[in-house]
Design a protein around this nucleic acid. Structure first.
Lengths: 198, 198, 198, 198
DNA sequence: TATGAATGAGTATTCATTCAT
DNA sequence: CATGAATGAATACTCATTCAT
């Protein structure tokens, strides 16, 4: 589903490093993950990390940046396939949940929860990469508002949904009794103006 | 509005330390706030901090614990004054927003965003203090469900709302064009099953 | 048995402090015993210690000095009562064991084992107070040598016996199957030239 | 004389660190020797110490452990070469004096005098390594007792001699008028039952 | 590219001591 | 005399980063 353009080959040393970094940053937090931890995870010595990344910041940035690119590409690709505005809203929610709970959950968690660990300069870079993604959300929600599908102002709704979705990483377990589709359905109910019976 | 039982007197040395800690932990993050930073903020020397708290962990815990207690007391007190279930749902949302964006916003931000920095043992303590607060939410939402006011299962809805509210700290600015009351209204729309016209 | 001249009254605040200091210094070592530990032991606050002693060094010095004085007085007094040289040697050994394992064992242990913790200047003071005590040992042993009671040179023998006696604090338990008298007998055997049958 | 199995190569960084640690721990005591002192002694920076040892405790342990191993090996090897029980007793004393006053005097002094500075858990490890050494002493002394060479019970005698020998570090100067052989002779006189004329 | 020893600035924490009350 | 909050220098230890091999 997700195209891998501009994404490091996961079987390369750099790719393995990024995957391990995402895993450890999620598990222990960025600041508590040492470069030595990371080196140990990929069975090299700490000094060798710096042949692949200039410094620890760069690793965090790369983890985040790759997931940002992947999310944007995935959303663009899936939105195209959706024909009604309702379907498009569903895609917005579903893709985000897929990233949070699917194969890229580690990197996505890092993007969402280690934001402040990133140095401000690089936060800006990520934000501008992420603008496209939010733009897609806004387009769909503005259309939905004009169609009377939603009630709350699109910008506010985007923030509300983003918050609700992000927070699922703290309580939702993929593989439990509630599927990601089921979860998507419930979030959709929140978003929509239920005036008739949807 | 908020009773101050079991809360450190804010004019005491300990109280000042806690307020400054909340401010700095919010601004720079717990792990990047040094004990020296904190001491400088209250114009004492770093060693003197340990006259008031056994270690840095204890400070984070105290900041969180006081806000947990205050939230619980505030919610209990306001819920009592609300007569309809609809009013009660509004109170759930309003109180949380008040804590996130009002006078206790620093401490509340720390509670919500520095969770992982807290050592696991103390996370447990906070969680059990917080159980009361969540219990209040559940009681109201279960009642609302039985009255047909909401559609999504109460537990899921609580998580969605909690996420949406928490996330407001990243984008909403109190004092802007949208008041906290206005913000509360919008969140309420999400929560409710709008079958007639609310 | 031990006269209390020049020794602090044990029921006075200073006396209680010294007794507690001896106890703690023996148990935890001087450097690991904090002024706060000591204050807690006598139920005062740490700042109050400095009304009784100028600094921590002084406490260690006082503990040592009092036991040095007491040992000297005890030995002088008991030697007088011994009539033969053999009896006197026995007294040398017995008194030392009595101090190491009797009521003053804490302070004696501190004197013997915390020597290096004392600042050099005060080590000199203790050494000169202790000269009298060693003088008594030397007088007795020189006489013993001239009578053919011992074989090894008196000065060496004094060191050997002193080492053997000091070391008993690491293995001998008063109140066990071997009494202090029994222990004295065994040390005496070492000291004496057993040419006939002692 | 001393085989170096299981002993760190003294020319390696770790070996140099251990030698310097032994020297400083003897001179100033363990607790008064700072990690910075130690680093300065080997001309590295304090942080680099922790490249070789996990913490300060480990350094003390390593110093003690190496000398314990060396003493055991030296004693085993020399005891084998002694044919009579009398010779063996002499070896017990001589080896201990060699360690206390010979090339390994620093480390041996640390083993004997910094015992309490070692954390209890590691004291146990040293004690169990040291059991072999004491076992050799006991075997020889028990044999000596059965041959009528000594009078005092072997276990007590071991403690007395150990104390007397340990104490020599406080007064005996190698290279003075009394040689280590001469010192050994004097201690031997203490140990033996001099019934005829030895 | 990988190693691993060394760096050096930084961290939380300790503790004897002071002093206004 | 006692208090207890504050001091401030010192401590062990951490860790991202460098660099000769």
């Amino acid at each position: 589903m997700i195209s891998q353009n501009r994404i490091t080959d996961p079987s390369s040393p750099r790719g393995k490093l990024l995957a391990s970094a995402a895993k450890l940053f999620k598990k222990k937090g960025y600041s508590k993950t040492t470069v030595r931890d990371l080196a140990a995870e990929v069975s090299i010595l700490s000094g060798s990390i710096f042949h692949h990344f200039k410094n620890k910041d760069e690793i965090l940035f790369a983890v985040m940046n790759e997931v940002v690119i992947a999310m944007d590409e995935a959303l663009k690709s899936e939105i195209k396939k959706a024909h009604t505005t309702l379907d498009k809203i569903r895609v917005l929610i579903y893709i985000e949940l897929q990233f949070i709970h699917g194969k890229t959950s580690n990197a996505t968690a890092v993007l969402l929860h280690e934001w402040r660990a990133l140095i401000p300069e690089k936060q800006q870079q990520i934000l501008s990469s992420r603008a496209d993604y939010f733009q897609l959300w806004d387009e769909v929600l503005i259309q939905a508002k004009s169609e009377g599908l939603i009630e709350v102002e699109p910008e506010y709704l985007r923030h509300f949904l983003h918050g609700a979705l992000t927070w699922t990483s703290h309580w939702y377990q993929a593989g439990g009794e509630l599927s990601i589709d089921g979860l998507t359905d419930r979030v959709l109910i929140l978003a929509l103006k239920n005036n008739i019976d949807q």
